[in-house]
Design a protein around this nucleic acid. Structure first.
Length: 286
DNA sequence: CTCCAGGTCGTTG
DNA sequence: CAACGACATGGA
């Protein structure tokens, strides 16, 4: 990969195994907006990014090499060899080949913990378009202004200190419905020093146990957070789509989610999170 | 109009 | 334990 810094943008050439659209649209994050084909506005980690991809060239507007090194390289997980991950998974399990080939450009993002936790509590029995609407509304009403692109204003997801001051009614006003008390619980659980580092010394089991102590966070949400913001790439969240897709591919009958989860963890091991995301996105797109 | 959405909780067999 | 309904809202 070759990186060139211009006055107002950063250009990454020969980017392998990465597609901005697939990575953002695969259902792991919600605070972004599509402008055109493979061109997006992304709000993450306290920053706003205008990003565009054509073939294997990625352009990041209004950013610098410093900000890239500090924020976006890690956020988009661009230092990791996805070619190697995909090869290993495909060799281990030929049933994954169609999913990986179809969703070849997905990267697992490294998101901010508090936003990711709140977003996936919101996600329960909601369609992705609705989750995005709710996250957007919370950001516009309670988050900080992040910048303007093409005359449109964008807002960050609220910081922990703001979330902790939000009432159940505040969350209800943002159409979160029966999840509102869960969100209040989760905000109360958060502390300002709870970033990724807070969990980095913990094992997967320890971190999961702590997340499950929040009323409103179950196995599925906990595993999403462990995977998408805490770096536990062995986490294997099982939702309705993974259930359907894996019943179809592996079980050929109605199967309980806890059995599917255990199966996924044992079959894919440290690469479980990647396998899950290829299968989820592939199964949902069919 | 009916069905269902990246679930979780409390209750009931 | 395992199964089941309630929960709030709105897209398809």
């Amino acid at each position: 990969m070759k990186i060139t810094e211009f006055k107002d943008k950063l250009v990454l050439e020969q980017v392998a195994d990465f597609d901005v659209g697939q990575t953002l649209e695969c259902g792991q994050c919600f605070n972004f907006e599509k402008l055109k084909e493979n061109e997006y506005v992304v709000l993450a980690l306290g920053h706003l990014l205008h990003i565009k991809q054509v073939a294997d060239t990625v352009t990041m507007f209004n950013t610098t090499l410093d900000e890239y090194e500090l924020i976006w390289k890690n956020y988009f997980d661009l230092d990791r060899d996805y070619g190697d991950i995909k090869r290993t998974l495909k060799e281990a399990d030929e049933l994954l080949v169609p999913a990986i080939d179809a969703k070849w450009g997905v990267h697992i993002l490294n998101q901010e913990f508090s936003e990711n936790l709140m977003s996936f509590i919101i996600s329960q029995t909601k369609q992705i378009t609705q989750i995005k609407q709710i996250v957007r509304m919370i950001s516009e009403k309670f988050g900080e202004f992040a910048g303007e692109i093409d005359g449109k204003k964008y807002y960050l997801f609220p910081e922990i200190s703001v979330l902790k001051n939000m009432t159940q009614q505040d969350f209800l006003d943002c159409k979160t419905g029966f999840r509102a008390p869960y969100l209040v619980n989760a905000a109360a659980f958060l502390t300002p020093e709870m970033n990724g580092e807070y969990f980095s010394s913990k094992t997967y089991e320890e971190a999961k146990k702590e997340l499950l102590s929040i009323k409103g966070v179950g196995e599925k949400v906990a595993n999403c957070v462990l995977l998408f913001s805490l770096g536990y790439r062995n986490a294997f969240p099982v939702d309705v789509w993974i259930k359907r897709t894996m019943e179809d591919l592996y079980f050929h009958k109605d199967t309980r989610v806890d059995i599917i989860q255990k199966f996924g963890e044992e079959r894919f091991g440290d690469l479980g999170g990647y396998a899950q995301q290829y299968l989820f996105y592939y199964g949902k797109s069919k």
